[in-house]
């Protein structure tokens, strides 16, 4: 049996007048993925998520949720839940009343799950208070609870950890990991790579409305490559050796004037050290420096980014 992927996005475009907020986004979230949708603020993440949830109409392209088009109405959202931007509730109603209202709009026995989801997000003792008095973090947690009421198979979360304190961020990560462990497919957006690095298996990086990378985190790490730092008794000569050495490229100078390069393999580094000795540039320091995903993320999302890293 062929089942449709939880989320498929093809050629998605949203224009507001002259402004193109989303410019041809393609992505596929497979069952069981914890998918990080990454990009700087204003890259088009939230607009994409609104289209995924059927809140706004695409100018072009399409979204499929388990094969269904969210533009056709709420029925397409069966098995799907989430929020865009900060989750919003009726401030004059209590947390529990808000959930009761949403459960009523869900039907399907959602009302019977209210205590359960309040426990999941550890909000039961504050459920009797008006939402107007909730902190930002409590609002985020209530948003997750409201989503879980629907027993989703696909959870779409827009910047779930934004505005949380470090403990709140950690709790949010643990919660997402736990939900994923229960078999839920999750897409979460973030402008911080570090936030999704620990929980996501796949990511898409979006910049100015376009996906500049989509693939596994492992591939992204590989693409980031390993940079080395080199100090010798004669850096001028060492630089000339590096420039012609096979498997060594991107030779340059670091901020402190030391040499840096990238190596295709570890063996190429060993061979380089031999070549340096033979040339009379004695190695004083040769240390690998892992390019962080953060570096790569900035490289991909900042203006000077030339081309996409091949996935």
């Amino acid at each position: 049996m062929v089942t449709a992927a939880p989320l498929e996005v093809r050629g998605l475009v949203k224009r507001y007048g002259d402004l193109t907020a989303v410019d041809g986004v393609d992505l596929t979230v497979n069952s069981g993925d914890v998918f990080g949708y990454l990009g700087p603020n204003g890259a088009g993440k939230t607009t994409s998520l609104r289209m995924m949830l059927g809140l706004i109409r695409p100018t072009a392209g399409e979204v499929r949720l388990f094969g269904r088009d969210p533009q056709l109405g709420a029925a397409a959202l069966e098995g799907v839940a989430g929020f865009v931007e900060a989750p919003r509730f009726y401030p004059y109603l209590t947390g529990r009343k808000n959930l009761e209202l949403l459960a009523a709009l869900d039907g399907d026995g959602a009302a019977g799950r209210i205590d359960e989801v309040l426990d999941v997000v550890e909000l039961r003792d504050r459920a009797g208070d008006r939402v107007g008095g909730y902190s930002h973090g409590m609002g985020q947690r209530l948003g997750i609870a409201a989503a879980l009421l629907r027993r989703p198979r696909l959870l779409l979360l827009d910047e779930p950890a934004t505005g949380l304190d470090p403990a709140g961020m950690r709790d949010m990560r643990l919660l997402i990991r736990r939900l994923a462990g229960q078999g839920m497919t999750v897409l979460l957006s973030s402008h911080l790579l570090a936030e999704v690095e620990e929980v996501c298996n796949r990511v898409a990086i979006i910049r100015r409305g376009r996906v500049v990378y989509e693939g596994s985190l492992a591939d992204l790490r590989r693409a980031a490559g390993v940079a080395y730092r080199l100090r010798t008794t004669d850096d001028e000569r060492a630089a000339r050796v590096c420039a012609v050495q096979p498997g060594i490229d991107e030779v340059g100078r670091g901020d402190d004037g030391t040499l840096s390069f990238r190596a295709e393999t570890e063996r190429a580094v060993g061979e380089l050290s031999l070549a340096l000795s033979e040339a009379g540039a004695l190695v004083l320091e040769l240390a690998p420096r892992m390019a962080t995903l953060e570096d790569l993320f900035f490289e991909l999302t900042e203006d000077h980014a030339a081309t996409a890293v091949p996935a």
């Binding site: 609104r50 809140l55 709420a74 929020f83 919003r88 409201a146």
Partner: peptide, 15 residues
């Protein structure tokens, strides 16, 4: 104004 339109329009009830 409250931002709750998106909250109720992403449930199971048609617009």
């Amino acid at each position: 104004h409250n931002g709750t339109l998106k909250t109720i329009l992403t449930r199971s009830v048609e617009r």
